[in-house]
Every structure is written in structure tokens, then in C-alpha cells.
């Protein structure tokens, strides 16, 4: 028996670490990975509440989050490749113009 609040606290900790990595990191790929970490933390919270309310819909939402994350990763990495091709850098501080 584990209190449900432990799971929720773990989700909050992972989400906070993801936000911190998003703010601190300067490599665009690592920033993307910290977004994936935040989505995973939310998934843990969804599954924990599905367990609490005995509802299947919480787990179905996790699938939709995963689909959105996969689509976002595919498009985002394509954008990273396009940026790298024109700028030759992965540092977000050097990518500061809207034009190519």
C-alpha cells in the first residue's frame, strides 16, 4: 500500500525537473527532451488518478498524450534538422532571427 500522494508528488518532482531543464539547457535537442520529460510526468499523474477513481478514461488520455508527443517529436526534430542545415548550430541563443 502506497499513498496516492506519493505518486502525485513524484509526478510534480519530475515535472519541476523538466521545467528547470527547459529553462537552463541551451542545446535545442536537450530542450526538446525536457518537454518529453514533462509529458511523462503528466502521464504518471493521469495513471495515478485513473487508479484512484477506478476509471479507464485516464489511461485512454495517456494514449492521446503519447500520440501528440510522438507527432511533436517528429515535426520538432525535422525543424531542428532544417535549422541546423542553415545555421550550423544547435545553441538556442544563436538562433534569434525569424528569417533563414
Amino acid at each position: 500500500m502506497v499513498p496516492l500522494s506519493w505518486y502525485l508528488t513524484l509526478g510534480a518532482i519530475l515535472f519541476a525537473i523538466g521545467v528547470a531543464a527547459f529553462l537552463v539547457k541551451r542545446n535545442i535537442i536537450t530542450i526538446f527532451m525536457s518537454i518529453e520529460l514533462m509529458l511523462n510526468a503528466v502521464n504518471l499523474t493521469f495513471v495515478a488518478f485513473a487508479n484512484h477513481w477506478h476509471q479507464v478514461s485516464g489511461q485512454v488520455f495517456v494514449f492521446f498524450v503519447m500520440v501528440v508527443a510522438a507527432a511533436e517529436a517528429a515535426v520538432g526534430l525535422a525543424i531542428i534538422i532544417a535549422v541546423f542545415r542553415t545555421r550550423e548550430t544547435l545553441n538556442v541563443d544563436q538562433v534569434n532571427l525569424l528569417k533563414l
Binding site: V2, P3, L4, S5, L8, A48, H52
Partner: peptide, 11 residues
């Protein structure tokens, strides 16, 4: 989370 800890129950 802490203030609602008892209401959330056990898993």
C-alpha cells in the same frame, strides 16, 4: 497534494 493527502487514499 499534502493538504489533500488523506482524501486521496491509498493505491
Amino acid at each position: 497534494i499534502g493538504s489533500n493527502g488523506s482524501a486521496l487514499g491509498q493505491a
